[in-house]
Design a protein around this nucleic acid. Structure first.
Lengths: 341, 341
DNA sequence: AAAATTTAGTTAAACGTTTAACTCAATATA
DNA sequence: TATATTGAGTTAAACGTTTAACTAAATTTT
């Protein structure tokens, strides 16, 4: 394959001129520029990434860090964020290098290889990760953006779902359906996103003048999988058997809860309305199809790449927070409260 | 960050020695090697990808090419293959650069950027792609492996599902359930994988001494989405209303078919058994849960990366074909034929 | 004891770019 | 007319490695 030297020779100029033409430097006259460009096309020349990277200290790559269990889990949540990033990256002429870190990442673990090898121009961290990896990454002083996680040290660029609004929208929707005894179930409550959804729930309830009994919510599950939803539903119903609607902090738990209700002959949505959060693939195959709050995952990926490109171009000073709006998706797991209840 | 020069100075050797130590060259004595390694650790030195890539003409990257509509579709089929590849790549110290190409890729389109920029050591092509991209890629003479697609020019390394076996296993399973009038529905029949599943169906039927009427199958749908399954089921039933079992070429079509059956008060599996192929996420949320042939997507990704590493190490001579075995997954959409029917 | 071989390194070129500093001719300014 | 400025390129250094070719000392062979 052709190198810059071949082009220079063929066009009868120095390699510097070729390089300047490529970068559209104004020092080069139009005729020369045109002549060189013609040769470039003729020889199908493209600058080598490695050579370019070596001298310019830009790799054209963005690192994408994801916790291993997030990466492996069957729901396509972070996968879709990644795909959005990947897709948007093409417009900025970047490639995205994906890597996973163990959930138990500690300060002694070595940072992702792409950082050590100076093979990325910036880093995206998706989802909740251990503090230690953040500290590690910060050391290398690369542009850093978070998506779907709000790190404890609050001074970074982030792309987040508007979880508080989402929590409010879901709860308000149930209220509009005349429900008053609305329960909330969650796991991993220390996660900022989950916490915000809970906050949204409480705010909506208060705004509507509905009291929140301590018995109205179960937030002590330590994970947000289906079985946690199942268990939480059981506990919730034991505490308060007059619940007519449940807002689950995510779809997996909502589906788990519905499974519990079904097994106990509680019909959805006739006896109890259930709404989830996320809008994962399974929702529409599930019976009943799940009402939920849609999280635009792909779009989040796009946004985070945009933000990254911005930081690289305009320096790390631009610390932005982007809140992605959510939509309510009404399906068959929610219904208006029956009067006779 | 430290460079090789810093290490050399600190260890009082030449940079060549440092390099040789890193590559465990036997020309270096043990004491020197140890001393240098200690300095490497102390300075947290790691060779730069770009510099290394420039001189060694190895980038440490593998290109992964996927058709755009495969990339964007909601089923996580190719995504999971990609994740498998990505995960396995870490063991070989590779990164995977993902790129998509338009479905209508033509000879005039420019090849993926990572090829032009000499930024990959090998190429994986996943799923069916236009011939033109294959021709394009072949030109650059890089190690090339296919996964889940068998290119027309049959002289490449490939990782495939054992589709014929899969088709036979599914059909034989229905036969074991006493079904005789077994229908087959498919779309995109020119796709080698689909075609093989059809072949498996026919072989199993013949082996069991069951005749295949032309009316037993619908293979003229041009895609394999849910609505194609829906339509195919309608057409199939119009041709032969004595069908008691249907083997769909993939889960999406199976689900579409079941939807049609449900809407027409044909109960699954009491009136008709349905089995799919792929084992996608939705299957277990669907009602009834779908019996299917499991395709180990993640494992395919792993296999293709292994094959790639092999080709890079041992030269392009090693043209292998790897057939990934499948499993039958029995769920609730299939049942033994009721006698009274 | 001289010659040949082995050991353990070093030197220097090369990989393919980018870019600051330089040159030389043409044009503008005093 | 001599001098300064501008225009359009060229030269050469630098980026951080790898590795073939070389060297000098130590060891082995004759």
């Amino acid at each position: 394959m052709a190198t810059i030297k071949d082009v220079a020779k063929e066009a009868n100029v120095s390699i510097a001129t070729v390089s300047l033409v490529i970068h559209k430097h104004k020092r080069i006259s139009l005729p020369t520029s045109q002549r060189v460009n013609k040769v470039i096309k003729k020889l199908n020349y493209h600058p080598s990434r490695s050579a370019r990277g070596l001298v310019s200290q830009k790799t054209g790559n963005i690192g994408f860090i994801l916790r291993e269990d997030h990466f492996l889990r069957s729901e396509a949540f972070y996968t879709r964020i990644f795909l959005g990033t990947e897709f948007e990256a093409r417009d900025y002429e970047y490639y995205v290098l994906l890597t996973t870190i163990p959930s138990g990442y500690s300060d002694k673990d070595r940072p992702p290889r792409f950082i050590l090898e100076k093979n990325v121009d910036g880093i995206i961290i998706a989802g909740k990760v251990p503090d230690s990896i953040i500290r590690q990454v910060e050391r290398y002083n690369l542009p850093l953006v978070f998506v779907d996680y709000y790190p404890p040290s609050n001074d970074h660029s982030v792309v987040l779902i508007d979880n508080i609004s989402g929590g409010m929208v879901a709860t308000r929707f149930l209220i509009k359906l005349k429900h008053k005894n609305i329960g909330f179930i969650a796991g991993d409550i220390s996660h900022p996103s989950i916490n915000d959804r809970f906050r949204g729930y409480r705010m909506a309830m208060e705004n509507a003048g509905l009291e929140i009994f301590k018995k109205s919510y179960i937030i002590d599950e330590n994970d947000t999988a289906r079985e946690n939803g199942y268990n939480a539903a059981r506990k919730l119903l034991k505490q308060r058997n007059d619940i007519t609607a449940v807002f689950a902090c995510n779809d997996a738990m909502a589906i788990g809860a519905i499974q519990y209700f079904k097994e106990n002959s509680i019909s959805i949505p006739d006896n109890v309305s259930v709404i989830g959060f996320d809008d994962v693939e399974a929702d529409i195959s599930f019976d009943p199809t799940l009402s939920t709050v849609r999280v635009p995952k792909y779009e989040m990926g796009i946004e985070v790449m945009k933000l990254m490109s911005d930081m690289i171009k305009n320096g790390k000073g631009t610390k932005k927070k982007v809140l992605i709006p959510i939509d309510l998706i009404e399906r068959n797991s929610t219904a208006e409260l029956k009067i006779y209840k």
